[in-house]
Amino acid sequence: MDCAYFDAGVCRSCSLMGEPYATQLAGKQRHAEALLAPFGVGRWLPPVASGERDYRNKAKMVVGGTVDAPTIGILDADGYGVDLEACGICSPGHRAAFPVLARFISLARIAPYDVARRTGELKHLIVTESPDGELMVRFVLRSTEPVGRLRKHLPTLLAELPQARVVTANILPEHKAVLEGEQELVLTEHQTLPMRLNDVTMHLRPQSFFQTNTAIAEALYAEARDWIRELAPDRAWDLYSGVGGFALHLATPTDASGEDAPDRGVPGPIVTGIETSVEAVASAELSRSDAALARVRFAAGDATAFALGAAPADVPDLVVVNPPRRGIGPELARWLEASDVSHVLYSSCNAASLARDLAAMPSLRPVQARVFDMFPQTTHFEVMALLAR
């Protein structure tokens, strides 16, 4: 993939841009294999490739420039806005929406935030596109001052951007490099964005994490379900469950042939999902209720504390973990090592922290693993491993 922004030196976020995609994928596979080599992976499945471009379903774009000429993209070293409206890794739906959003910023007179002077209001936009082409648009603001104008001109935005299902104002008063603030004001009738993957529909709330690459997330969840069906566990925990991607896929009933059969099939395991984000748990619960899945439940809490506080009789056959980049950490790893859990499905966005965690669980060995290229044009990727005691 070629990128004019990269070639001009105005954006270097995609560090592998211009490198042949086959070379990128092979390098990620080698890196994963090298990190996990000490643990004797029983079988490496071929890596799952992504489309080279148009893959991002979520874009966090800094707003710079002026109220009459806003830029949507990043800031340069001096704090000035660099417009990236034609970014090739963003979805076509994003690229179509950015010019409309730029016009709306001017119409509603929302001054871009000036980082150096700490003036202005609009810090960045967070835009998420569903597999059906609907959008969630979040305006991250310094204060509630522009909210009245957002509401006043919202009909104009929805007329020009009818695919915008959810529009919100997120309030981030602090001057610091974080994604969002705690306060979220939903401005539209709809409050969730349906994300339809495989036979599961997840209802995404504004502050809920979702995998960035829809096609690869779909492949990841489908593969996890296939691996776990072969194990046929009675009970499972999904720790760091997010909006419930793994738990909802595992809990969907199947018929005797293994085909998805939500209305008539063999029930999946009883699944408990644990996640610190209250918003993500609310999303997962809505999805569970919508799908009428009685054998899965979600609760807000710390994954490690939940495991350490469980009674021995409540420990399941299988534990799924999908932690942030830091991994599950030594405390949860020690608990898993000492537990009676027979299998762990570990999905990692950082193979280095996965390797550290595996070193702390010597009796749980990776019987198979697979790389999923969630982030083409960068050095990052997802790797999923099935551990057996």
Score class of each variant (00 low, 15 high):
R205L: 14
A352V: 13
L154K: 11
M361A: 13
E223G: 01
F246E: 01
A294R: 14
A292I: 00
A77D: 14
H380K: 11
Q377C: 11
L386R: 10
A224W: 02
I72Y: 00
P70L: 08
F98V: 06
I328K: 03
P173D: 10
L358F: 12
L308H: 12
A294E: 13
V321T: 02
R297H: 10
R30G: 00
V115L: 15
H249L: 04
A369M: 05
W44G: 01
F39G: 03
L185D: 11
L239K: 08
L193K: 10
R235S: 13
R334T: 13
Q163K: 07
E279D: 15
L172W: 06
F298Y: 12
G40D: 09
E134T: 12
R149H: 14
M17W: 08
E223S: 11
L141K: 11
D290W: 10
P376W: 05
C14M: 08
A116F: 12
R30I: 00
E331G: 10
L318A: 03
S363E: 10
R196E: 08
G327I: 04
H343E: 08
D76T: 09
R53D: 10
R142W: 07
N198Y: 00
A111R: 15
D68E: 15
V243A: 14
L248P: 02
K176F: 13
V82K: 06
